[in-house]
Write a protein that binds this DNA or RNA. Structure first.
Lengths: 208, 208
DNA sequence: CAATTCTGAGACATACATGTCTCACATGAA
DNA sequence: TTCATGTGAGACATGTATGTCTCAGAATTG
């Protein structure tokens, strides 16, 4: 029985990120409380959704804080940000999917504040010569947040191991998908370059 | 007046991707038809959502087809896929956000089929030595689709110029965010390496 | 133990989106 | 013109999630 608000909100995210239109009964059951108590904690569905969004924003803001994104080398700051935000990736996924949230002024303002911090980080990195300048800082911000959300969805669906999350996110975002022969070859380069067809390797992917 | 189904569905995406719980009145108005006609074309909200999802999957499958992702060099194939899928990025964004869709078996099967094709592309690229093998093909598939969706959201919100979309997606996904001094320096490298604080550069970002 | 507070279960009313139907009008064909 | 088809507007019924209330029992506190 999780009677404290944040615990209930986290349970709510688990349901709402999968089924945004889930009934309050379902959310209450997921949190291990009754619908009455849920309604006592959060008066109405709208309030509940709003609080979930605010929790997500608080967590993301906290990640920006603990990572100290406004200080030091931009690349190092981004790596710290990844480590700090991956634990709350599911909440970020909720923020990314629930566009409805941004009709609320309080949430919208808080959101723009955090995105501005992200934007400033990338801008600073570009001025430091760390990040590419052919890609706009706005796009880098958007893409980064989308990938954090993607990590959240993947972990939730069991498609990505939580232990691999930070590494996968950091490496893909910073280094891209292309293999770079000139880069440090820290693994045995014994892959066949043959172009044999691989139609027999069928993964068991789920949904997005 | 768009009486043909696909045009109505595209109008529906424009509304539903922003507000997944939009009323049918709103969708009908966006399509320029009456609620009665909307109901004649698609009997019920559930049918409408399903058809939108199927349209998105058809378009994405078509992009995989026209790109010929199962043939030739994996990197070139991915670049072709970007060009082919960016025009339908908004539909992909809908597919990424509407988890509800995947309770339908028909849609789920079609989805897994396309994701398997993506997965096979990355696996082939890894075997060719084109894509990094430290990142799982499953994660590459997920990240790529999330970024396509991100392009769709960004364009819709006016945060990314449609002309820049394909380039931004390709470059970030393939090359990553880090600037590489050893790579081709096709722009004047006259950025100051000074670590001056840049808290005065405030972007005007919107929502995710 | 006694008292207060909180919770769960359920009943009940309400609001609202949706499904269904009718009818008048416009468009297009014969 | 006349008929046929399709559309828009609106009224109406319905289902269902939600808001509200009550009451009994559990948990906590004194």
């Amino acid at each position: 029985m999780a009677t404290d608000r944040d615990t209930v909100l986290e349970a709510a995210v688990g349901v709402l990120s999968r089924r945004p239109t889930a009934h309050l009964d379902e959310i209450a059951r997921a949190a291990g409380i009754s619908r009455a108590t849920l309604h006592r904690l959060f008066p109405g569905r709208e309030a509940l959704i709003r609080e979930v969004g605010l929790l997500g924003l608080r967590r993301f803001a906290g990640a920006l804080d603990t990572a100290g994104v406004e200080e030091g080398d931009a690349e190092a700051a981004l790596r710290r940000l990844v480590d700090a935000s991956v634990p709350d990736a599911m909440l970020c996924a909720f923020l990314a999917g629930e566009n409805q949230l941004y009709e609320n002024d309080e949430i919208n303002d808080l959101w723009e504040l955090q995105i501005a911090r992200l934007h400033a980080l990338f801008l600073r990195g570009q001025q430091q010569g760390v990040f590419r300048i052919e890609l706009s800082a706005a796009w880098l911000s958007e893409a980064f947040f989308d990938l954090v959300a993607g990590v959240g969805w993947s972990i939730q669906d069991g498609r990505l191991a939580p232990r691999d999350a930070a590494f996968s996110l950091t490496e893909l975002f910073l280094g891209g998908a292309l293999r770079r022969p000139d880069a440090a070859a820290h693994e045995s380069t014994t892959h066949s370059t043959s172009d044999r067809s691989t139609s027999d390797c069928r993964p068991d992917t789920d949904k997005p």
